[in-house]
Amino acid sequence: MTRSLKAFAAMFKIEFFKGIQYRTAAAVNSVVGLFWGIIEIAVFSAFYLYANDKTAAFFASLTLRQVVTHVWLRQAVIAFHPQNIEEDIRGKINNGDVGVELVRPVPLYLLWFSKTAASRLVLFLFRGTIILFSMFLSGIYKISAPVSVTGFLLFLVSLVSAFFLCAAFGMFVTSLRLAVDWGDGLTYIPLIAANVLSGSYLPLQLWPDFMQKFLLYQPFAGYLDIPLRFYIGSVKAGEALPSLIAQVLWTVFFIAAGNIITAKNVKNIIVQGG
């Protein structure tokens, strides 16, 4: 336990200083997020304010204010989402440096888990600035305050949980990529599925009503949608505790699966190059 914490702290430090070095890049990344958020809100407000069927907005499970807040929070929390295998790690798998990683006195899974998690956390810190900016926007574009103190605290708890879930899934996919001769395609497909089902395309509560039960308990709701529901106050009665538990159970599942697949792939590992 202390060893894993130490490994994580060391990785976080490395990634953090790497991030600081390229702070212009990080700032630019936030500008893109801000731009993206504004387009999203323009599209959503067209539906909410100008759709011919005025009752649709009334019956939707989220108000425009809640959707706008969802959009802005998403811009920061999306930093947790594994969009790809860590570039460093992928390079090591492709060019054979994975052999060097295996020599290190830290288990491969733990080492890479720390690296994956740390780099995501650094990106999250930078992208948090988008939320700060969105507080100063005017009209419909402005982010709202959390619905209540309890809501905000539960949001924080769920956010920490989301962080570990994202890292666990990122490592699950990385462990698949260890079978190097399959190439990238196999690993991208679960990553795409995760992105869509996380609610980063559209808040899950705006998806068709008959899918709601499935959407809440599939693994990727915990990426983004569950924590944000606490913040904007759209958690349905009786779903708060089950959704928090689902988040943790999926995290445990992906950590276990990642470990098993890593162990299996390391046995037959192909070290490319020298």
Binding site: A51, L206, P208
Partner: peptide, 28 residues
């Protein structure tokens, strides 16, 4: 799988637009 992957991205990218239209109907 790479071809399949791009197909998936392309199909899924506008999914929010399609789902929003199915919930809200036409805009003007």
């Amino acid at each position: 799988f790479m071809i399949l992957q791009v197909f998936l991205i392309v199909i899924l990218d506008p999914i929010s637009t399609v789902l929003m239209f199915s919930r809200f109907g036409n805009i003007g």
